[in-house]
Amino acid sequence: MISNGEAGLCELDKKILNAVQKDFPLTSHPFKEMAKQVGLNEEQFILRVKYLKGKGFIRRLGGVFDSKKLGFISTLVALRVSPEKLEQVAERVSLLPGVTHNYQREHYFNLWFTLVIPTPSKLEETLQAVQKYEGVEKLLNLPAQKLFKIGVNFKI
């Protein structure tokens, strides 16, 4: 895999990436304030953010919500899938509503996904359905019981 790594980023870009990860001001001209912090004007800042987004350094600029506070429940699910069925199961899982992350991992439990869903009964229903997918040998439901730290900003 080719990676730009940090090599593709100049000091200014790094400052901008650090700035946009912070909470945007809830004011009429949020980018103007952020631009000031990195020594640009509003227009220059917006242009550069567009560039960084176009280059794929920024995945999304928007709201990050607390799913629990929105009334949703979430969980992490680990599956043991027979290796020859893994891809097929993974594709079915990805299509389920509420699946946000779905990864093959190097472990006996080889497919891990996160599920955000409106009600406990929907969750139960989904897990039971997944358990019946051809190739699924075991399923672990691993909801977070206690959060010690949630997100993190990346010092670029």
């Binding site: 593709g8 794929g56 995945r59 600029l61 928007g62 506070k69 949630i150 997100g151």
Partner: peptide, 22 residues
Amino acid sequence: FKERGILRRIGAVLYHQRAGYE
């Protein structure tokens, strides 16, 4: 929304791989 705890923040989500966090 922030006061109610619904909105954590408005900001950027990065592609960490591209930013050097491989």
